[in-house]
Computed example of a mutant assay.
Amino acid sequence: MPNTVLTILYVVFLLGMFYVAMYIPDRAKKKKFNKMLSEMRVNDKVVTTGGIMGQITNIQEQFVIIQTGPDKVKIKIKKEAIATVETRKADNQK
């Protein structure tokens, strides 16, 4: 009987460690990503998950329109497809 209690406690401990190791860092990463998306502004430079680089020209609820290349091609992409945002230096100085 004491062996089963120890086994159950061991399993609960392992599941708790799994939760701490997997879900808490993921939640922090998701929170940081959502903050980055909410702070995007027009004229910020972005890189998408596909490697497309451009400048934001319009922000909609779920989509962002970016302008790429010297031909000024405009592409409509989902906000979730943005990997990094380089904010304007004028905003960083305020």
Score class of each variant (00 low, 15 high):
38 S>G: 05
11 V>L: 07
83 A>M: 10
67 Q>V: 08
32 K>C: 01
9 L>R: 12
19 Y>S: 07
90 A>P: 02
82 I>K: 03
92 N>E: 07
34 N>P: 04
83 A>S: 14
34 N>V: 07
26 D>T: 10
91 D>K: 05
7 T>G: 14
85 V>T: 00
20 V>Q: 12
73 V>W: 06
87 T>P: 08
55 Q>G: 13
14 L>T: 04
36 M>P: 00
13 F>Q: 03
24 I>S: 11
3 N>K: 09
22 M>S: 07
94 K>L: 07
42 V>Y: 05
65 I>Q: 09
78 K>Y: 07
5 V>W: 12
91 D>P: 03
84 T>D: 00
71 D>S: 15
51 G>S: 09
40 M>E: 02
62 Q>L: 15
26 D>P: 13
79 K>A: 08
34 N>A: 07
15 L>W: 04
40 M>T: 04
44 D>H: 02
56 I>M: 03
81 A>G: 12
35 K>F: 02
1 M>Y: 12
74 K>P: 09
86 E>K: 00
53 M>R: 12
56 I>R: 01
7 T>Q: 03
88 R>P: 00
62 Q>D: 14
27 R>H: 03
23 Y>A: 05
69 G>K: 05
72 K>E: 11
10 Y>Q: 06
87 T>K: 01
89 K>S: 01
73 V>H: 08
84 T>Y: 04
48 T>Q: 05
9 L>S: 10
58 N>S: 12
50 G>D: 05
31 K>M: 13
11 V>F: 09
7 T>S: 08
41 R>L: 00
66 I>D: 06
7 T>D: 08
64 V>L: 02
81 A>T: 15
80 E>T: 14
4 T>W: 03
24 I>G: 05
12 V>R: 07
73 V>D: 15
83 A>V: 00
72 K>C: 05
27 R>E: 02
43 N>M: 06
18 F>A: 09
42 V>S: 06
31 K>V: 04
58 N>Q: 12
22 M>K: 14
9 L>V: 15
1 M>S: 11
82 I>F: 03
47 V>G: 10
46 V>E: 02
31 K>F: 05
75 I>V: 13
29 K>P: 00
31 K>P: 09
11 V>G: 13
46 V>D: 00
13 F>R: 09
29 K>F: 07
79 K>G: 00
87 T>G: 11
19 Y>P: 13
44 D>I: 06
